[in-house]
Amino acid sequence: MSNTEAMDVRVEERDGAVLVVPTGDVDLHSSPTMRERLRKAAAGKPLRLIVDLSAVPYMDSSGVATLIEAMQISRRQQTLLVLCGLQDRVRSMFQIAKLEQVFRIVPTADEAMKA
């Protein structure tokens, strides 16, 4: 399996927003797949880019780095990036990395549509 096949990432459009839904652990093996999907999703310059992490039980710093990169791209093109559905271990990672205040984080995808 190559890095670009290391995880499933669903991308869908919803009411003008783009919703990215990765499934599985995000680590150095799988984060290139998420990075590629996020870049493609952001390339259309949507008004809102939502990353639903409810199906991600684990994330390491490579996953966090991927989300920081997506945030930087989003800011440059005035896309609003919203994270939602963080499980406890993933939220803990954001706390350890002192990034909870850097991202816009809400509980659910529905709330992300209104954030």
Binding site: S61, V64, A65, T66, I68, E69, Q72, M93, I96, A97, K98, L99, V102
Partner: peptide, 18 residues
């Protein structure tokens, strides 16, 4: 530096935190 928000460079910080 943690206030320098950019991809990468967090691994050692995370190890020392946990």
């Amino acid at each position: 530096a943690l206030e320098e928000i950019r991809p990468g460079g967090l691994g050692v910080h995370i190890m020392r935190e946990v």
